[in-house]
Amino acid sequence: MNMNRTRDIAAMLLRAAKRKRLVTYQELHALFGRDEPLQSRYRALENAARSLSDCASLDYGCLMSLDNGLPGDDFFNRFRHGRPREYEKVMGFGSAGRSMTKKRLIADAERLRVFEHASQIAASGRVANTLRPYATSKCT
Rank of each mutant, 00 (worst) to 15 (best):
T6Q: 09
D8A: 08
I9V: 07
I9R: 05
A10Q: 09
A11G: 14
L14K: 12
A16H: 07
A16K: 09
K18T: 13
R21Y: 07
L22Q: 14
L28V: 14
H29D: 04
R34C: 10
E36Q: 10
P37L: 11
P37H: 12
P37T: 09
Q39N: 07
Y42M: 11
R43E: 09
A44R: 06
L45C: 13
A49S: 13
S51P: 01
S53Y: 06
D54H: 08
C55Q: 01
D59H: 06
D59S: 08
C62A: 15
L63E: 11
L70V: 07
L70Q: 06
P71K: 04
G72D: 08
D73S: 15
F75S: 06
N77W: 09
P84L: 10
E86L: 12
Y87K: 05
V90K: 06
M91K: 12
S95E: 04
A96Y: 00
A96C: 07
G97M: 03
G97N: 01
S99N: 06
K102E: 10
K102C: 05
D108E: 13
E110Y: 07
R111N: 02
V114S: 01
H117I: 04
S119T: 09
I121C: 12
A122V: 12
A122T: 05
A123K: 10
A128L: 14
T130F: 06
A135Q: 15
A135K: 13
A135Y: 03
T136I: 08
